[in-house]
């Protein structure tokens, strides 16, 4: 009975985090983006500086009619938002936020494999949506998503492999237990490659070619409306949380901090995640969208060589210190 309660409690907490953090990131994006552009952003919903804007948006989405285009592949079309969203929920289960046993939803031994594999599934949601919509813009968006996934999954995996090599384990808490502060400069190139590739996989600006609204309306999500559309948006922000959390755990030492290691480790994790999320918003505001060929070029000629160089460096240092 206690085991069941434990599992239920963990799932509830993970689900709550999964519902709350993306909204927090979304609201932060509203506000940060506005101020970076000399605006105020939402000011009315909820009374105080528009804090409830996303809640209001959610209510609006829930009220909208759920339309499926006549020629769409009904079942696939309706399933796609769930496929886009759920993987991030699964990934969140495996991310440790503190050193104790209770600070992770479920310890997965092959943590990195699990996390990266499941994150890759998320992109399938966009692909399904693009194919099933029976709309040329959706199809173009879906294909661009596929191309982007192919290009950026590889550097992401290589960068993660570098950390796994350094720690000698693929378990996420294991990596964190092995973490030393000097890993930071040692793995910095890998960290940047991982973060940028993750950004591209989330289709966040400046890598938002698959949803480029000035060219292909909204890519794979063109035909969606109401709650299903909201799920896609939620998936994007959940993806930000997951990517920032993963980067924190793999490269920035997760719960390790200069002080207050006992009991306050989760604060460090959340703080680092928040800073990275701010960085993602910052990049979105600052840079224009990359063209499709620039996007591919960045992945194949910059990120992959960098990731390989990082692996080589990791290997050399690893051998040297043994």
């Amino acid at each position: 009975m206690n085991d069941v309660l434990d599992v239920v409690l963990r799932l509830v907490i993970v689900f709550a985090v999964f519902m709350v953090l993306p909204l927090v990131v979304g609201q932060t994006e509203h506000k940060v983006m506005a101020h970076m552009q000399g605006r105020l952003g939402p000011m009315y919903a909820g009374g105080f500086h528009g804090w409830a804007q996303l809640v209001a948006d959610g209510v609006k989405f829930a009220q909208k009619e759920d339309i499926v285009p006549a020629n769409a592949d009904r079942r696939i079309f309706q399933l796609a938002p769930a496929v886009a969203l759920l993987p991030y929920l699964l990934v969140l289960v495996a991310i440790p936020i503190g050193p104790s046993e209770g600070a992770v939803g479920q310890v997965v031994d092959a943590g990195i494999f699990f996390v990266l594999a499941v994150m890759g599934v998320g992109v399938l949601g966009s692909l399904m949506a693009g194919w099933a919509s029976a709309n040329k813009f959706s199809l173009l968006g879906g294909l661009r998503t596929a191309a982007q996934l192919l290009a950026y999954e590889l550097p992401m995996l290589l960068a993660a492999a570098s950390v796994a090599m350094a720690a000698g384990t693929v378990s996420l808490p294991g990596i964190l237990n092995a973490f030393e502060w000097w890993w930071l400069p040692w793995q910095i190139v890998g960290a940047i490659v991982f973060f940028v590739a993750g950004l591209a996989e989330l289709q966040r600006p400046p890598f938002d070619m698959p949803v480029a609204d000035s060219e292909i309306i909204f890519g794979a999500y063109t035909e969606y409306t109401g709650l299903r559309f909201a799920l896609f948006l939620l998936a994007e922000y959940a993806g930000i949380v997951v990517l920032c959390g993963l980067t924190t755990v793999l490269f920035l030492g997760g719960w390790h901090g200069p002080w207050g290691a006992d009991g306050l480790g989760w604060v460090w994790t959340l703080l680092k995640t928040a800073i990275l999320a701010f960085g993602i918003i910052w990049l979105r505001v600052t840079y224009p969208r990359l063209r499709e060929d620039q996007l591919q070029k960045l992945a194949w000629t910059v990120l992959i060589p960098l990731a390989l160089a990082q692996i080589a460096l990791t290997g050399i240092v690893k051998v040297a210190i043994q």
Binding site: G38, W282, V285, Y287
Partner: peptide, 9 residues
């Protein structure tokens, strides 16, 4: 570019 957006903020 990053500096410009940060300053504007």
């Amino acid at each position: 570019g990053l500096a410009v957006t940060l300053r504007t903020m």
